[in-house]
Simulated assay, not measured.
Amino acid sequence: MTEATRSTPTEVRTEEDVRESVTAIVTELAPNPEQIEGAGDSRLVEDLGFHSLALLELAFTLEDEFELPPIDETTARKIVTIDAVVEHVTGILRERGEMAS
Rank of each mutant, 00 (worst) to 15 (best):
A76V: 13
A4L: 14
E65C: 06
E95S: 12
D64Q: 12
L55N: 03
R43V: 15
G38S: 10
G40N: 06
L48A: 03
A24K: 10
A30M: 07
I79K: 01
E15S: 14
E67A: 13
A84Q: 09
H51M: 11
G40K: 02
P69G: 05
L55W: 02
Q35S: 15
P31R: 04
T23F: 03
S42P: 06
R19E: 14
V22N: 00
A76I: 12
E11Q: 15
L48S: 01
L68W: 02
R77S: 15
S42N: 11
A54Q: 10
G91L: 09
N32Q: 13
R13E: 07
L62Y: 02
E67R: 09
A76G: 11
E63K: 05
E98T: 08
D47K: 05
S52G: 07
T23M: 06
R6G: 05
A30S: 13
E15I: 12
I82G: 00
F60T: 14
D72I: 11
A100W: 03
P33H: 04
E73F: 13
A100Q: 11
I36Y: 07
V89F: 00
V45D: 01
L56N: 09
R77T: 15
G38R: 08
D41F: 10
V18Q: 00
V22F: 01
S101K: 11
E67F: 03
G38I: 12
F50S: 00
